[in-house]
Design a protein around this nucleic acid. Structure first.
Lengths: 215, 215
DNA sequence: CGCCGATCTAGAACAAGTTGCAGAGTTGAT
DNA sequence: ATCAACTCTGCAACTTGTTCTAGATCGGCG
C-alpha cells in the first residue's frame, strides 16, 4: 500500500527503508522511476525544475499516483536525499576515511561528501532546500535523513559507545554541515570557507575524545 | 525609489539599512506597515499564513506595490527578520551578557535570543524557513542577516581584533544557531537539546581564545 | 468466469505566488 | 498652473503545487 509507504511511523526498524509494507514489483519499479526522474530533473535545473507534473510525466505515472507515493514535493525531494545518502553511506563504509584523530576522519568524510555534491550542485541544492524547508508534516522523513547523517559522522569517529557530550558534538557537526552547505549552494561562501568551517567544527570531537595513548 | 530599495548592491555602507535611497515619508510609512503586517500574520499562522494578498490588504497597499517594495515573499520575510534582528541587537547592546569566558557570554546571548524567539515561535518559523529557503536571488539580503548574526556573536565575545580561526568559529556558531533553531521549530529537537548544542558549539570560541590568565 | 476493493489514469479544479496592464494619483520642474 | 514622469491602485491572468472526480485496470477470491 503505497498510501502508507511514507509513514514509517510505528515501524521499529527505522534504519532500513523498504520492508515497512509489501510493495509489489510494479510498485517498487514505479517508486524507483519517480525518484530517478526527480533526481534527473533536479540535476538539470535545481529545486524549481522539479515540477510535479514533469516528474509524473517523466516517470510515466499519473499525477495522482505521484502524490500517493510522495504526498508533497518536499516529501519527494527528502526521499531523494535519503536515497542518495544511502548510496554515499554504503560507499563510505567500503572505504572508511584515514586519519589519526577522530576530527581528521570526520573532516575527511565530510569533505569527501562535499566533493560528491560538488559534482551535482543543482541536485544538492534542491535536496538541501527541501530538507530545511520541510515543516512538521515531514518531520519523520527529515528525521531519518538526520539520523543517517549522524550515523555517517559517528562511523567516522570510530566511537563504540558515544557519551552525551559526544552526541551533542556530532549533532553540532551535522548542523554545521547542513548550514555551511546551504551557504555555499546559495553562493554566499566559497569552497575554501566550507572546508575551513568543517575543519573548525570537527575539532569539537577531539575535545570530547582525548586520544588515550598520545605521547 | 522603492524599486531599488532592496538592491543594497553597490552600497558601501552595508551595515546600516536606511540611507541607500531616499524614501519619502509616505513610502517609509508604507514599508513599515508592510513589515508590521507581515510580522503580525506570521505570528498567527507561520509561513503559510503570510499570504501576499493578505499582507497587501492588511497593510492597505496594492498587491503590485507590495511587490515593488519586496520582490518576493522570501524577500519580505527576510527583510522582516532583518528588522527583528536589529531590535534584538539594539537590546543586547544595552544589556550585554555577563560571563567569565567568551563561550559563556556567547551562549548566554544566544540563549537570550532563543527565549525571545520562543515567545513567538510561528514568526520565528516563518523567518527562518524563508532564510534557509532563499535562493541566489536573495543572497544580498540573506547575507545582511548573516552579517548581523555574526556581529551579535562577535559582540558577545568581546574580541577587538578576531583572527581568521576565530571568525571561522563564529561562523560555525552561527551555522549551529540557525540549524538547531530550525530543528527545534520543526519539532525534531527539544528546548534542552538546543541549549546543549549551543553550549557545545560555543566551546569552540574558547579553543581559539585561551584566557591569558588561566592557572 | 465474474465480482469487489484497491490502485492507477486523465484531466478538471482550486490555491497562492507572481506578473502585466490601464487608469488614477502624486511629485517635481518649469 | 501645467506637463511629464513616476508611483500606486484594482484587477485579471498565468504558473505550479495540491486536491478531487469519474472511469479504467489490476489482483485476488468465490
Amino acid at each position: 500500500m503505497p498510501a502508507d509507504a511514507h509513514r514509517t511511523k510505528a515501524a521499529p526498524d527505522a534504519g532500513r527503508a523498504e520492508p515497512a509494507s509489501p510493495l509489489t514489483e510494479r510498485q517498487e519499479a514505479r517508486r524507483r522511476r519517480i525518484l530517478q526522474a526527480c533526481a534527473r530533473l533536479a540535476s538539470r535545473g535545481g529545486f524549481d525544475a522539479v515540477q510535479m507534473r514533469e516528474v509524473a510525466e517523466s516517470s510515466q505515472v499519473a499525477l495522482g499516483t505521484l502524490y500517493r507515493y510522495f504526498p508533497s514535493k518536499i516529501h519527494l525531494l527528502v526521499a531523494t536525499m535519503q536515497d542518495q545518502l544511502e548510496h554515499l553511506h554504503a560507499t563510505l563504509r567500503k572505504k572508511p576515511p584515514a586519519g589519526e584523530t577522530a576530527a581528521e576522519r570526520v573532516a575527511g568524510t565530510l569533505m569527501r561528501a562535499f566533493r560528491a555534491l560538488q559534482r551535482d550542485p543543482l541536485l544538492a541544492d534542491a535536496m538541501m532546500r527541501a530538507l530545511t524547508f520541510a515543516d512538521r508534516g515531514v518531520s519523520a522523513e527529515v528525521e531519518q535523513v538526520f539520523r543517517r547523517t549522524t550515523a555517517i559522522i559517528l562511523d567516522a569517529t570510530d566511537l563504540a559507545d558515544p557519551t552525551p557530550e559526544q552526541l551533542s558534538a556530532v549533532r553540532v557537526i551535522g548542523h554545521t554541515w547542513h548550514s555551511t552547505l546551504i551557504t555555499w549552494l546559495s553562493g554566499r561562501a566559497s569552497i575554501e570557507q566550507v572546508g575551513e568551517d568543517i575543519d573548525t567544527v570537527c575539532r569539537l570531537i577531539d575535545l570530547t575524545v582525548p586520544p588515550p595513548g598520545r605521547d
